[in-house]
Write a protein that binds this DNA or RNA. Structure first.
Lengths: 233, 233
DNA sequence: TGACTATGACTGACCAGTCAGTCATAATTG
DNA sequence: CAATTATGACTGACTGGTCAGTCATAGTCA
């Protein structure tokens, strides 16, 4: 009873009309879902989107939930209907954003053509999908916050890094077997294969304004190093 | 007058005795300097050391100046005798730590021997000096905080990255001229040369406990890729 | 002793998380 | 089908705690 909501003040007109969607300049002008569940899902998505943006821009500690709420067009309390607290929100966020990317990248084309083409297609896809994208910043964010969020680092290692490394190693071994790759030791360090892609992601995110980097072209040069130079362009 | 420091309270006994050095288990047990300037320099160094540790462990926003002060064996107010505020302390910190590393790495051995040996010596030095060191974590910290500290990102680009890239490019061009490197395009992306080293630094800092990485060996394999495989070990 | 340096209690701003209350929608009833 | 009741998603003012930065006081050196 300490409350006493002054009950006046709020002009009871604004939110009464079309509260849900029109308000807050919500992200997509999709026709508002009419049932509760759909509305809730919509809001959750808005929160995830907003939180991602804020966390990327400010890092975990400096991000204010008030800002996330404002950006999502939602009250702060609503966030707590969807997430336990700031920390677990961050951890869930990483999963939510990364899982679909992994799925997309895992759905590889069938292993036809040369190993080089395979690798190039994959890496090119990765660059298109990640570098110069919100996802690229997420990678930087994980590098940044990883040590303070072992759960995040573990998840990322398990779901992305170890899988990626294993996949690259298989590809390298195939390349060696087929005689496309001559450096046998490369199979011991598949990291070398993806290093330029990672560098590209970080570079864009830190130094793009000083010196933009043509990641696709750099990738091609790097692959020339591994598979031997290609004849013409 | 809103203040009013109660003025009593503090038992004036603890810190009065051997305050300066013995306290706080300070880093090095060097004999305490006797003159003021030296003492001040010592304290400043202790603050820098402590701040570096804390910023690396927690990131900028989550680091408390109280913790830095405690770790440095100094009162919080003392920090403000040496640095304007938290932000500029962070920026200065980066400079203070990086400058000597750059200087050390810039003092290259005279350009004798093969380009490969030159590159290998340099990179090996870099790994020894940076990876598995506090410095390596600093690199991660810069990647993490760079976007929120344009001054830091700029400084790092200017002092480290652009110089490094230029140096590597010169080395690559020398290698091409001497016939040691066949991939001419490599000169367009010196990043490729250092990518594995960077990856190694980040890897150690994030995934060492999952899967430690032999950076030196990876480097060697990578150089084999660029310069051609070496005969025996 | 006087000038300089260090201290740490204190302040005010800020922010994660809470919860009493609201209201659109869904369910039930006549 | 309209009226009534129940539900629970949503809100945002509020609390308790934290922390950067200050400054009156105490200590130290030359």
């Amino acid at each position: 009873m300490t409350k006493k909501p002054i009950n006046i003040s709020a002009p009871p007109d604004i939110r009464s009309t079309a509260k849900g969607r029109a308000l807050a300049g919500g992200g997509d002008p999709v026709a508002a879902a009419s049932n509760r569940a759909a509305r809730a899902a919509e809001r959750r998505a808005a929160i995830v989107e907003a939180a991602l943006e804020e966390f990327i821009a400010r890092g975990f500690a400096a991000t204010r939930l008030d800002d996330i709420a404002k950006r999502a067009g939602v009250a702060k309390g609503t966030i707590y209907l969807h997430f336990k607290d700031k920390e677990s929100m961050f951890e869930e966020l990483v999963r939510i954003v990364i899982v679909p990317v992994v799925e997309k990248l895992t759905a590889l084309p069938p292993p036809t053509g040369s190993v080089r083409d395979l690798v190039e297609a994959f890496a090119s896809n990765f660059l298109k999908e990640v570098a110069n994208t919100r996802r690229g910043d997420l990678v930087r964010l994980i590098v940044a916050e990883g040590p303070r969020f072992p759960a995040v680092a573990d998840f990322y290692y398990r779901e992305v890094v170890s899988r990626g490394i294993a996949g690259m190693r298989a590809l390298i071994e195939l390349g060696i077997a087929r005689g496309e790759i001559h450096q046998k030791n490369l199979a011991r360090f598949p990291q070398i294969l993806v290093a330029p892609a990672m560098i590209a992601v970080i570079w864009q995110s830190l130094f793009a304004r000083h010196a933009p980097l043509d990641a696709q072209e750099m990738l091609r040069v790097h692959l020339d190093l591994i598979f031997g130079e290609r004849r013409t362009t």
